[in-house]
Every structure is written in structure tokens, then in C-alpha cells.
Amino acid sequence: MSIAFETLGENVTLVRLQGRLDATAAPDFQNQLIAAIAEGRTRLAVDLSNVSFVDSTGLGALVFSLKAARRAEGDLRLVAPSAQATKLLQLTTLDRVFRTSETPDQAWA
């Protein structure tokens, strides 16, 4: 999985992912997000539009990072999750935890 960080307006960091957010990719993804939060990037929008598959370990990394962002008085929001990711969020009821938007611009609007 590839990860790219971009700066959006109002001190928001867009995290673009490509590939699978699964048990193999999740540890590195989580480490990179935690490092970004430690650098002060606490308002995160994670773009899932190019993520083909998310498993529960991937969701766990998102929740772990969300907690870290909140501790730093920020937040982590999801952008454009696929039908598969949306279904998993519903099945696990984690859809109650994350704010989701269709585009990066809407994430912190």
C-alpha cells in the first residue's frame, strides 16, 4: 500500500492511500499516521477512494490513529470509503465512530 500526505487548507492533512489496508499494511500505515500526529498534523482526512480492501486490522489502525489525533485535540475523518469498507464499518458498528465524507474538501467543511 502506498501512503501520501498532502496539506489542505485550515491546517488539515489529507492522507491518500492506494492498495489494501489490511493486516499486512496496517502496522506501517499506523506508524506513519502516529508520526504525523506527533509532528502536529492532528486534523486528518484519510482518503480511502483508492483502497480496494479494508480488513478489521486496517480498521483497528484507523481507530488507534483516531484516538491519538483526539488526544492531540484533533480528529481523523474518512473520505470516500468503498462499498466494501462502508459495509465493514456498518457490520462492526464503527460507522458510529468515524465522520465520513464523499470528497476531501467536505471532510472538514
Binding site: 483497528g60 481507530v63 483516531l66 484516538k67 483526539r70 465512530v97
Partner: peptide, 9 residues
């Protein structure tokens, strides 16, 4: 069932 936990859960 070894998830992280946040308040909303």
C-alpha cells in the same frame, strides 16, 4: 475481537 476502544463504542 480485540479492537481498540473509543467512547462512542
Amino acid at each position: 475481537f480485540a479492537s481498540e476502544l473509543v467512547d462512542e463504542m
